[in-house]
């Protein structure tokens, strides 16, 4: 699946998007983020405060307990500040 990062999350991780294949047993957004945090320190740093992070699955707002099965695109980003 494709992961997208925006704003300071993108800067801390160092890329705007990447393709990942989470191992079996990773079923929710929260588990996906916890798995990413174990990969490299930059993820751990980026996801230190998950309360400040929002998620969209296939371009629809979702939450951290949402299942990721079948998702093509998961975006993680800080609260929006447009307007």
């Amino acid at each position: 699946m494709k992961l997208l990062y925006f704003a300071w999350l993108r800067e801390r991780i160092g890329v705007g998007s990447e393709d990942v294949s989470p191992p079996e047993g990773i079923e929710t957004v929260r588990q996906l983020v916890d798995w990413l945090k174990t990969r490299e320190p930059r993820y751990d740093h980026a996801f230190a405060e998950t309360a400040a992070i929002r998620v969209a699955i296939d371009q629809e707002q979702a939450d951290f307990d949402a299942p990721i099965a079948g998702a093509r695109e998961i975006a993680l980003f800080p609260p929006v500040t447009g307007g």
Binding site: F6, Q61, A75, F77, P78
Partner: peptide, 10 residues
Amino acid sequence: LKTRAPFWKK
């Protein structure tokens, strides 16, 4: 728009 649309200001 301010709370739902995915824009970020720097």
